[in-house]
Every structure is written in structure tokens, then in C-alpha cells.
């Protein structure tokens, strides 16, 4: 008797979670939720609308990468061409050069610009005078707030044949003045160098914040063990900011394909395309200047897919290696 009862109960529970019931359940929950949170949904509706139109709209528009889009025929009227544009891009003379330039610029900023922020933070962390520290911080944050147009304008000015950098080089080493902005072999150095100059202070903020969160007792313990300041830096401070470093590294790898397109557009010219032209600037020239919409959308989609894949891989590795991850 008891057994039968149990089976009936078990059966009714099973029945309760059948698909149809789950739908009604969810409907009831949704209706109740909507009644309770009417104002919340009203508040978020403009944000959702923005994301649908201006973020998911372009994603929907990416279909033109597989079409032969012409404005006259419109999004839906244009004929499908499959992977035609991708093939064209992979077989073009530009493909290898763009990929190489994009990857090299990202790689150099990864090994030069990224550690620069960490090093500055470590050095600032060792400064005892509060006023001095704050002054250095305020000064090094400053260029971050200056527009790229002005930064690149200053770069043109200072690296000109009659500019201050040539003046110093010529008077110190007696070399011929160099037209830096017109020499393709100088482009990467100028790009990374000016990037560090502009952002090293700003990128140190996040590491300094992470350092201030380190438990002071760890330093006390290290001191008891006879660790000097340098050893404390290596064994307490660095491990303490590691989670921050890993997360920023993941984010950076996710942006690996998106180098500073806007800055390059301001800096490059046909004589430096050799090293300066990257996928983003090529998309701009093909798409906006030459109105080759479908082809350039395909190139842009290629970039976005690679970037997304890299992000997923980097996150996976970080997840395996430790407990720091984005998701």
C-alpha cells in the first residue's frame, strides 16, 4: 500500500515537470515578475532598445558579408554570394601584410606597453612620500585625457625633420635628420612609444588599486622571515596583483585584432602602409572611402571572429591554470 502511494506521488511529481506544465509555470512566473517589476522594465527599455538597434542591428547587418550588397537593392534584395568575399580577401596581396602588421603591433604592445604599467605601479608603490607620489600620478595620467588627434599632432611636430628629436639626435650623434613619420621601419617604434608615453600612467592605476588591496600582514610576515624590500616586491606584491594581471591579459588578448585603428589612421600615410596598414584601417579604406561594403564587412567579420576565438581560448587557459577567469 505504502509503496503504491509512493509511486503515485513520484508519478505526480514527474508529471508536474512535464514540458507543458513547465511552460505554464514559466508563463505564470513571467506574468508575476512583469507585474512586480513593471517600472524596472520601463527603466531598462531604452537601454535594451539601444542595444537592439545599435549593437545587434549591425550584427544582423553582417549578413552583407555573404552577399553582394548594393544600396539600390537594399539589405534583403542583394544576392547571396556565400564565402566569395572571404576567398577574395584570403587570396589578395593585402591579406598576409595586414595580418602580419596587426599581429606584430598587438604583440609589441603586449610585451612592451602592458608590462610598462605594471613596472610603473611597482615603482610608485615603493615611494613613501605621499605628495610626491600623488604628483607623479597626476602628471602621468595627464596625456590619457589628451585627444589622439593632438597626441599624433605633437608626434608629427616633435619627430619632424626640424623637430626637437632630430635636433637632439643630430647635435649628439651628428647623424642626418630622419623623417620619422615617412619611414616605414620607424612606424612601430613610434606607435608603441607614443602609446606608452600616453597611457603608462593610466594603466598603472588598476595595478596600484590591486596593490592597495593586499593584506598588510603578508608584508609583516615576509619581514619577519628576513625579506628585504626587493624580495617583498617579488614574493608579496607581484603574487598579490596576479589575478588582476591575468584578467587584463585576457581582455588584451581579446582585443588582439583590434589595435588602435583610429590612431593609425591619424599616423600613417602611403609611404608607411608597409608596416602601418592593419585590418581595421584597411576596412575603413575599402568600406568607407571606396564603398566596397560587402567585401569590407567580410574583412571586418573575419577580424571579429578571430578576436572572439582568441578571447575564448585565453579565458579557457586562464581557467585551467588558476581560478581567475572572465566567466
Amino acid at each position: 500500500m505504502a509503496k503504491v502511494e509512493k509511486e503515485i506521488i513520484a508519478g505526480s511529481i514527474k508529471q508536474k515537470s512535464s514540458f507543458g506544465d513547465r511552460v505554464t509555470n514559466f508563463k505564470n512566473k513571467a506574468v508575476k515578475d512583469f507585474k512586480r517589476n513593471k517600472l524596472i522594465y520601463l527603466m531598462i527599455s531604452p537601454v535594451v532598445l539601444y542595444y537592439i538597434i545599435f549593437q545587434y542591428g549591425p550584427m544582423y547587418g553582417l549578413q552583407i558579408a555573404f552577399k553582394d550588397y548594393s544600396p539600390a537593392l537594399g539589405f534583403h534584395g542583394s544576392p547571396w554570394v556565400g564565402f566569395e568575399h572571404f576567398k577574395d580577401f584570403f587570396n589578395s596581396f593585402y591579406f598576409g601584410r595586414l595580418l602580419k602588421n596587426t599581429i606584430l603591433l598587438s604583440f609589441y604592445s603586449l610585451i612592451f606597453a602592458f608590462p610598462a604599467g605594471i613596472i610603473l605601479a611597482l615603482l610608485l608603490n615603493e615611494v613613501r612620500g605621499r605628495v610626491f607620489k600623488r604628483t607623479v600620478q597626476t602628471v602621468t595620467y595627464m596625456p590619457h585625457f589628451v585627444s589622439l588627434v593632438v597626441i599624433v599632432g605633437i608626434l608629427y611636430d616633435f619627430t619632424a625633420r626640424d623637430g626637437v628629436i632630430n635636433y637632439i639626435l643630430v647635435s649628439l650623434f651628428g647623424i642626418e635628420p630622419i623623417a620619422f613619420m615617412r619611414e616605414s621601419e620607424w612606424f612601430r617604434t613610434l606607435y608603441i612609444g607614443s602609446d606608452i608615453w600616453q597611457n603608462v600612467g593610466w594603466s598603472s592605476i588598476i595595478f596600484l588599486a590591486a596593490m592597495s588591496g593586499i593584506d598588510p600582514s603578508l608584508y609583516e610576515a615576509a619581514k619577519m622571515d628576513g625579506a628585504g624590500r626587493f624580495k617583498q616586491m617579488i614574493h608579496v606584491t607581484l603574487p598579490g596583483i596576479m589575478p588582476t594581471v591575468v584578467i587584463l591579459l585576457i581582455l588584451l588578448i581579446g582585443k588582439f585584432m583590434t589595435v588602435g585603428d583610429e590612431k593609425i589612421l591619424l599616423m600613417y600615410n602611403p609611404t608607411t602602409y608597409d608596416t602601418a596598414d592593419v585590418i581595421g584601417t584597411y576596412v575603413y579604406r575599402k568600406g568607407i572611402l571606396e564603398s566596397d561594403f560587402s567585401y569590407s564587412a567580410a574583412v571586418g567579420l573575419f577580424k571579429a571572429i578571430i578576436a572572439f576565438t582568441l578571447l575564448v581560448i585565453a579565458n579557457g587557459i586562464a581557467r585551467k591554470a588558476g581560478d581567475t577567469k572572465l566567466w
Partner: peptide, 19 residues
């Protein structure tokens, strides 16, 4: 999720321009 996803994948310059 819908919002955070746009930080990692976006339609890009050309579709935005056409939009």
C-alpha cells in the same frame, strides 16, 4: 548577457555605417 556579449563581439564599422 546580451549587453556583455557586445563587449566581445560586434558588428563592426561597415554595418554600423550602413545602419
Amino acid at each position: 548577457f546580451m549587453i556583455v556579449f557586445t563587449m566581445f563581439f560586434e558588428g563592426g564599422l561597415i554595418p554600423l555605417y550602413l545602419l
